[in-house]
Amino acid sequence: MPAKGFFTDTTLCIGCKACEVACKQWNQLPDDGFFFTGMSYDNTVALGASTWRHVAFIERPVPLQTQDAGAFSWLFSSDVCKHCARAGCLESCPTGAIVRTEFESVYVQPDVCNGCGYCVVNCPFGVIDRRSDDNRAWKCTLCYDRLREDMQPACAKACPTESIKFGDLDHLRAEARARVEDLHEKGLREAYLYGEDEHSQPGTGGLNAFFLLVDKPEVYNLPPDPVVPTKKAKDAWTSMGVAAAGMALAAVGAVLWGKER
């Protein structure tokens, strides 16, 4: 089975939120409550246990190079679980609830998760969250159930402008690179890919859901240089060794020294 994923081209997004609604409908997720945020047209705020696709709306006092609209532009970007090649959530899950599927996606088995919440602090993108009722971790499944039936994910299917492209990762990567070149040619020099492979995002080994952006990742609420925590854990394990050794030494010392007096 070739690895599947998303290439979300934010320059094609029109902020219609069809992806958000399609995801909720397919996965039968409830609403997040009704709250006017005053944050442009974004009233669902962030990804979470009940929002697996989230469209960000960025009003910025910076023009796009291909646009004549004064010193202003409005960016949209549909965010989702990245299905990281090295997934913090998966590597940290103590129960093995999170698995890598035959599509190379990262899937939480709802019948295994015991709600320890460790994945929540281990996702460098703030994606996965615990449900507030039964506390199981909950996130995008890459529509595993649909993929198994040879259908594409609901969000990609609903996207009217093909901003969300679903397919074999190899193809998507090639397509994305060509797209960036094309945009550069058209004058949109700001365009670049975020997380398309291990090279561009070594910390995560590349994202199976990667993006084309036109501003700093921070603008879209994406970390500029994310890293799967396990990659850094070696340092901590080493320190633990030191700590244990020190503690053992201290204990032995205390016994010997204490006794001598």
């Binding site: 960025i58 919440g117 969250d129 921070e218």
Partner: peptide
């Protein structure tokens, strides 16, 4: 920049 000052990460749920 930040996204309306909203967090990137999820808070520890513990």
């Amino acid at each position: 920049p930040t996204y309306y000052g909203r967090p990137v990460l999820k808070e520890p749920v513990w």
